[in-house]
């Protein structure tokens, strides 16, 4: 990864003018589409991109409206990592050089139905960058709970009522599940911190082998937020500590952002329709879970 340090940093000033994800039919203000757009601009035109059945597939490839200007393919829902592996290995076997393969999948496609194939991809050491855009539910099918839906979230399969206050489970610890494979590079990011995300994609792209980025990506439709706040709300998730920015590299974890003080969890939650129902006790329990997680991360991981 030493070469990453010598690269010219990609910024809005010097990033390619080329757009690779364009004219798609994602909802206005879609955070996932921003995550895909920025990553493809970092990776450039010699990129094969694989998308499982999900929002990006549904909005990007509606014949005859093809929204990717680079090579792109829809895969089966559980098979994005294995198909991306096949692309990378097939292209290598054909002697094709100087290319990158990237897989983009949502939280459900990654942490639930696609986890097994992703584990295999990392295990084989295939040269694929896997980016999970996490909007915390199955949005394409109409906002159902996934393994990365946080505690207390109202979804269409975890309705908030008198008896149950939305999702009863916490988010799976996806980043550490991936890191536990001893993957060469893994990171978390947020579209609320787009330069940090670009930096991490740029770094991950240098890895010859598997790399993983878990990027927090808002969904105004599923979250019940105004379209214009999509970037802001993804930043607030980080600022209040419910999402964290970190890297795993050479066997070490590192917090890349370690807030001195967290912004208000209640403020973050109450802006979103999916959390409107939460009681003070629910919010207190969410904060306690956050504090427990951060205590452990700060104790165990490198940070400034």
């Amino acid at each position: 990864m030493s070469s990453a340090n010598t690269l010219t940093r990609i910024t809005p000033k010097n990033i390619t003018d080329q757009e690779f994800f364009y004219g798609h039919k994602a909802c206005a203000g879609c955070g996932g589409s921003l995550a895909v757009r920025l990553a493809l601009k970092v990776l450039g035109e010699r990129t094969y991109a694989a998308f499982p059945a999900g929002c990006m597939a549904a909005v990007g490839f509606i014949y005859p409206q093809m929204a990717f200007t680079n090579n792109a393919i829809i895969t089966t829902f559980p098979g994005v990592a294995s198909m991306a592996s096949g692309i990378a290995v097939g292209a290598k076997a054909l002697g094709i050089q100087n290319f990158k393969t990237v897989a983009f999948a949502g939280d459900g496609g990654t942490a639930d139905i696609g986890l097994q194939a992703l584990s295999g991809m990392i295990d084989r050491g295939d040269d694929v960058l896997y980016i999970c855009y996490d909007n915390e539910a199955y949005m394409n099918t109409g906002i159902q709970k996934s393994g990365l839906t946080p505690f207390g979230t109202q979804t269409t399969t975890t309705p908030a009522g008198k008896n149950i206050h939305g999702s009863k489970t916490q988010k799976k610890n996806l980043f550490e599940i991936i890191a536990a494979h001893d993957i060469p590079y893994a990171a978390t990011a947020s579209i609320g911190y787009p330069q940090d995300y670009i930096d991490k994609v740029q770094k991950a792209a240098q890895v010859k082998g598997p790399a993983f980025i878990h990027v927090y990506a808002s969904c105004p439709t599923g979250w019940g937020t105004p379209t214009e706040t999509s970037v802001e709300i993804a930043k607030e998730a980080v600022d209040c500590g419910l999402f964290f920015l970190a890297e795993y590299e050479n066997g070490d974890y590192r917090l890349t952002r370690n807030p001195k003080q967290f912004a208000s969890v209640a403020d973050y939650l109450k802006k979103q329709g999916r959390f409107k129902h939460l009681s003070d006790a629910d919010i207190a329990s969410i904060e306690a879970h956050r504090d427990h997680k951060w205590e452990r991360m700060r104790r165990m991981w490198n940070h400034q």
């Binding site: 004219g23 005859p64 409206q65 093809m66 929204a67």
Partner: peptide
């Protein structure tokens, strides 16, 4: 399979 970036429609 079809030409990459072929847009038949505006938004």
């Amino acid at each position: 399979q079809f030409t990459a970036g072929h847009l038949a429609d505006t938004n």
